[in-house]
């Protein structure tokens, strides 16, 4: 029995200490859609700066913001929308001076080729996937676009709300829906689905990815260096490679 207690205590301690935070670490909290970009950039940065280690946390912007609010160790936060950045700013957790736009994305309609080529064509379709408007920014932008194009009433019954953009794409790939409103960058990663048309920019606000150092990250020299690197030319070319717009 004593041994069991000993072993259990040891295991618990190991688990608790499994992710210690060292001085050379940079903690990144990044919106999931930027996963590929940030992976590539952090790898190349780490090659040039040996000794720097990245701890990367990808997820929904809201989840990340909540985690930071609850004290998760973080140095840099890149959100997929302005709302959550404002949320952290208001909580005095983001370094106001550092807040800037990292990149832009655009909304497209992806689906099986031939199904639609403009917003008006959507009426002919049976089922359209969007992210849940309340929780997924891409879904929110899509519903705004429907309203502006005066299609909202006609499309209401055709909409399938998904948990996130990737789930939207999964439905498209499996043929469960005719198409989905997703970000260009996500659509480019899809295997079967193709971009059928880009949603005209005047129908929805621009998809902006703001980036900032957190209050804790301001004191982390490596983090600040990496933050500057993210605004450099190398970052811009990687972003372009994955379909993001930098201007």
């Amino acid at each position: 029995m004593k041994n069991v207690i000993k072993i259990t205590t040891t295991l618990v301690c190991l688990v608790l200490l499994a992710t210690p935070v060292f001085a050379g670490d940079i903690n990144l909290f990044v919106a999931a859609s930027l996963k590929e970009v940030i992976n590539e950039l952090s790898d190349s940065f780490a090659k040039k700066n040996p000794g720097v280690k990245f701890v990367k946390n990808y997820g929904a912007s809201g989840q990340l913001a909540k985690q930071i609010e609850n004290g998760a160790p973080s140095d840099i936060f890149i959100s997929a929308n302005l709302e959550w950045m404002d949320y952290l700013k208001n909580k005095k957790l983001a370094d106001v001076a550092s807040i800037g736009t990292f990149t832009y994305n655009s909304l497209v309609f992806a689906g099986t080729p031939g199904k639609a080529s403009s917003m008006q064509d959507l009426i002919k379709l049976e089922r359209i996937a969007i992210g849940s408007p309340k929780s997924v920014p891409a879904g929110e932008y899509a519903t705004e676009a429907f309203k502006k194009a005066s299609l909202d009433k006609q499309l209401e019954k055709k909409l399938v709300m998904a948990k996130d953009v990737r789930e939207c794409l999964m439905y498209v790939e499996r043929g469960e829906v005719d198409g989905a409103f997703v970000y260009r960058t996500d659509a480019l990663l899809a295997k079967q689905a193709k971009i059928l048309f880009t949603v005209p920019q005047e129908l929805y606000p621009r998809v902006t990815y703001p980036a900032a150092l957190t209050i804790a990250g301001r004191k982390n020299k490596d983090a600040a260096t990496f933050f500057t690197y993210l605004q450099g030319d190398e970052a811009k070319s990687v972003l372009a490679k994955y379909g993001f717009a930098t201007r």
Binding site: G62, K134, S135, V160, M161, K163
Partner: peptide, 22 residues
Amino acid sequence: AGNIPGVTQTIPLAIYEYASSP
């Protein structure tokens, strides 16, 4: 079933949606 309000959105799905918006 998706997360379609009024059609397939059950309590946990609704809570999830609320909780992920500030």
